[in-house]
Design a protein around this nucleic acid. Sequence first.
DNA 1: CTAATAGTTAGATAGGATGACTAACTATAA
DNA 2: TTATAGTTAGTCATCCTATCTAACTATTAG
Lengths: 388, 388
Amino acid sequence: MQSIGPSGSPVPSGSSHLLRTINERAALYHLLENDTLTRVELRKLTGLAKPTASQVMLRLLESGLAITLGRTTAKQVGPRAEVYSVNADYAYAAAVTLREPDGVTVAIGDLKSQERASSTRRIDFTKVSPDLAVPDMLRRTAEDAGIGLERIAAVHIAVPGAYDAETDTIGFADLPGIPDVRMRAAVEAAVECPVAIHNDVNAAAVAERRNPAVSGGHVMLWLGREGIGAGIDLKQGLVVGLRGAAGELGHVPAFPDRTTPDDPTYQDWIGAPAVIAIGREHGITGPDAPAVLAEAVKQGAEAVLDAYASRVAGALRMLTHLFDPPKLVLGGEIARAGGEVLVAHIRTHTGEFGDRVLPSAVYGDAVAIGVLDLAYADLKDRVLDAAL
Amino acid sequence: MQSIGPSGSPVPSGSSHLLRTINERAALYHLLENDTLTRVELRKLTGLAKPTASQVMLRLLESGLAITLGRTTAKQVGPRAEVYSVNADYAYAAAVTLREPDGVTVAIGDLKSQERASSTRRIDFTKVSPDLAVPDMLRRTAEDAGIGLERIAAVHIAVPGAYDAETDTIGFADLPGIPDVRMRAAVEAAVECPVAIHNDVNAAAVAERRNPAVSGGHVMLWLGREGIGAGIDLKQGLVVGLRGAAGELGHVPAFPDRTTPDDPTYQDWIGAPAVIAIGREHGITGPDAPAVLAEAVKQGAEAVLDAYASRVAGALRMLTHLFDPPKLVLGGEIARAGGEVLVAHIRTHTGEFGDRVLPSAVYGDAVAIGVLDLAYADLKDRVLDAAL
DNA sequence: CTAATAGTTAGATAGGATGACTAACTATAA
DNA sequence: TTATAGTTAGTCATCCTATCTAACTATTAG
């Protein structure tokens, strides 16, 4: 199927120099994809002639983008082929996750997508401003791993709010002080490399790309301990919107005839308040919404699960009619607490769309994983684009 | 800002032949963009050397893609430069609009985006199946304009429903018989060129790209005489969804606690039924919803306009929170009947998003214009991609 | 006639493909 | 154990293609 994008992109022109660049880019691309390559494998992938492949590799070695790892251990007749790889230490990507109340998590990975250092610190953002805390954590984490800050070529940050790239501000934020911070400017000044900031739910949606079942795109409905939201990751890529506020489902009034600020939103209708209220109606309580739902699952309280599932299914139906995504993924602490049981209940309420609904397959911290994946992808793109 | 798309696309490699292709494509691209070019202008656009530009043009002339239009009328010293242009007759694009009750509209345009032939016929789809009517109309329209069917290289069709490209079926259709038709297969068999089918509201959204105010992307809320829907045209392109059902706002239940098939949907809440009901409450009637709203505007019935505007604003708020589009465009017969007055009322109800709301700036048949624009763009892409 | 511009021709240059060649290595058999 | 055949990795020399530069011719206004 043809893409239905905006009108055709500008078409470049060039001379032999462009050709060399193209072939170097191609080789580098395959090196990035394959983690280790011999010249013969490179020839098969690129279709280049033997001497050309040799020259291209030579230039990549000279520029420091590639390194030799030794030779193949002979299992066939003939000499052993030289084994090449991307120079993992050519550049690094940093991923940062900002959270309330967990503070800041930083992870630094190399060009081969290997995590090289990470650290987490609880930070009281009412005392330490995040635009100071984040550069400081980046500096320390890099230093501890023996990585020079100047070799970090991409920093990606996940924040619990809507990041507006144009004004460098964060809206709808659940973090104290955040709206007044110019995060990108602050971090770019400290690290001197491009900084991108993402919504945390969008990052979690990106992490879900690791699940092969969602390869065609998906909408992630995030049912978090604090807030809810939708991460919209279609085949065209993430939908972030003009002000980074796409997918802010929690702020949509639930009932179109009651739209004053005091009237219920989807946050009230399917978020933590709803779980706690439904639980209480049926005599199930807990310290927070995930705990309530976990208890309901444990007790087999079908009525609670069904009442909540029915509401979630309503939201999923709306998202399906608006985005028609191949998959609808349920993420966040509440969804995790509900587990497969909750998903099964939701499926019965979504009818024809039921087979599109699935729980998140990402283990661990989806937001941190997603923002690291975004950082890796960006780093690779930048290295490819810079390859001259 | 970097795009946040799926992982990097495969990178090509090649030899000098690739270089020639690249430069030919670049020249052709500029010819398509500029409608008439001299060799000197081409050199400025591509950066190619004089002899190279000459050779590239020679090949484009030989392949029939370009033609000479004569020479510049001398206004400066020196010889007159030869003027080139794309060969408008190299290939044609056809646009088809299917509607109830207007039947079928066909327009055929050339590679220079000039409309060359068009025709409209009322067809009773309960008697003539659209998969027979459309090829027949295409054949006749082409024949009348002296255009060979075999030179039509792209056919795009707008239908009032959700086109599922995978199964070649049309869902949510407002047209009799349509769900059982394999439209693309039928037309492709008759015309022997790629056929693409679009939702009519999406086509109208594409037409709105002609309005420079929406250059950053927009969501079109279509308030039609029959049905409503949203056309989602973001900077990444049209969002069509897995089954072509994205933006089917009319089928979203308006109230999340009432979701049986009999309960009100957004079609009931902001579509024609709502206009007629609100009008009747205030003593304004008419043959259809646009007429009611036009009458309300004429009478200055603020209460009617305000009640309806408040509902529409609610839908726009939902769309804004979910898509965060740079612009929200109001289209369709009801919106047109409401005019600027309705837009002003809606703006007062949308608060902070009010400045994003604007009426459609497309005069005439937005659906037909949009599907023709899609056909032109596709034709150009195909010609560029085929240029070897 | 002069200056400026359009376009061509000739030669140089860069990058890649081809095919022959060398070197390294395994397997096999005397 | 040694010689040999066969296979594979990588290089070298040569040719091909497409571009660029620079010089040249032709055309036109003043």
